[in-house]
Design a protein around this nucleic acid. Structure first.
Lengths: 209, 209
DNA sequence: TAAGGTATAGAACAAAAGTTCCAAAACCGG
DNA sequence: CCGGTTTTGGAACTTTTGTTCTATACCTTA
């Protein structure tokens, strides 16, 4: 990336501000007006440079087809149900992420969610998970996984006990050690056949007010 | 808000998807193509209804001037230090929110932070706050306040014990009841003169991976 | 000073896109 | 079945907007 001229920086800043304020990108002539430039060709000229240098992308022949890569992305995470001790957690279906508009969603940032796919959220019902430092009403961020690595925090369904619990998982031979988040508490050892991994916990969010 | 017809829901979903994929709103004719509609007037007709019912906003005579109200905006929250049992928490200074770029920041959404002013974040050091269901490494979202209401979750400095703790605060005469988040635990009663409110806790964020 | 790249102007053109009008079709309660 | 409303279809019209061409000024460098 080459250094940008003052004009180019001005244009780039204007585009970002415009998108922030209006919600859609500016036209060439919006930029002309906003940057005190007297010709559309000047803007076009500089936009070409900005595009070549990778500062933005343009859709040709498309009005307002200027795309400033967002500094960071928002992520819409579907809130698909509740997690409680006595019942298996809801499983996201294939179209859960398609019609986000329909259900309830949580808007988070990429900083929290990462670039992961298959992330969904569950609301905690009941006080049964305080040993995982999770309170009634907390939001648990889950990732849909078929398998988990040792040390992952997971939601497991204990078949015999008929219970969901949130623990860090360590395989030890044919049994599994489930370590509570609260490391002052004792781990739970269960038979490997008794645990069914329902998803990986990637975060917990609590709003106290 | 009236119920939307199938067509209107279809159009609304298409707009959201389009904005998500392309980064700018669709034109009327984009919607015509995307929803298998045979005339721009049909789209215009339905957009008018959607606007009247408050589902979107239109900038007249502006290409792609369709605005689906974003559920919320981004918020940059400064991460100004650590919170641990044995030491008072860092206090945000006047310019903490001015040069956000300088220090470390957390990017969150308005859905989490709200429209509040004076929000900052602290990282939890140590296991001393598990009784507040807060783990080592968790992020505590704080709001700078001079006073707190009964029932607020606050960070208080206990002068005698020289200790920070996170509890819900209830004034009871000249003593204060400090109620742990984990409501299976017993409250702590202390002298009102012994507590110094350092900030209000508005949330907790834990990332487990 | 000449040459060449960079930047700005102005104008004109063509395509894209919002708006409007009217008529036909579909729907719906009585 | 009727009369009204809602919804759709088609077309034309106007404005907006991306694109392009040419001319000019500015600057650096040989």
């Amino acid at each position: 990336m080459k250094d940008l001229s003052a004009r180019q920086q001005q244009i780039l800043a204007f585009i970002r501000r415009f998108v922030g304020e209006r919600g859609y990108p500016p036209t060439i002539r919006d930029i002309v007006a906003g940057c005190d430039i007297s010709s559309t060709s000047v803007v076009d000229y500089n936009l070409r440079i900005l595009e070549r240098e990778g500062y933005l992308r343009r859709d040709p022949e498309v009005s307002r087809g200027i795309l400033c890569p967002r500094p960071s992305g928002r992520r819409l995470v579907p809130l698909i149900g509740y997690i409680a001790a006595g019942e298996p957690i809801p499983v996201p279906s294939a179209d859960t992420w398609d019609n986000l508009a329909a259900g309830e969603t949580l808007e988070l940032t990429e900083e929290l969610v990462g670039a992961r796919e298959g992330v969904y959220a569950l609301k905690v019902k009941g006080d049964s998970m305080v040993d995982a430092l999770v309170n009634d009403g907390d939001i648990v961020l889950m990732q849909q996984v078929s398998t988990a690595n040792d040390g992952d925090m997971v939601a497991v369904w204990l078949k015999v006990e008929r219970e969901v619990t949130l623990k860090r998982l360590y395989r030890e031979g044919n049994r599994v050690r489930l370590q509570p988040a609260n490391n002052q508490m004792q781990p739970l050892y269960v038979d490997a056949a008794n645990v069914e991994i329902q998803g990986r916990v990637i975060g917990v969010i609590r709003q106290t007010v």
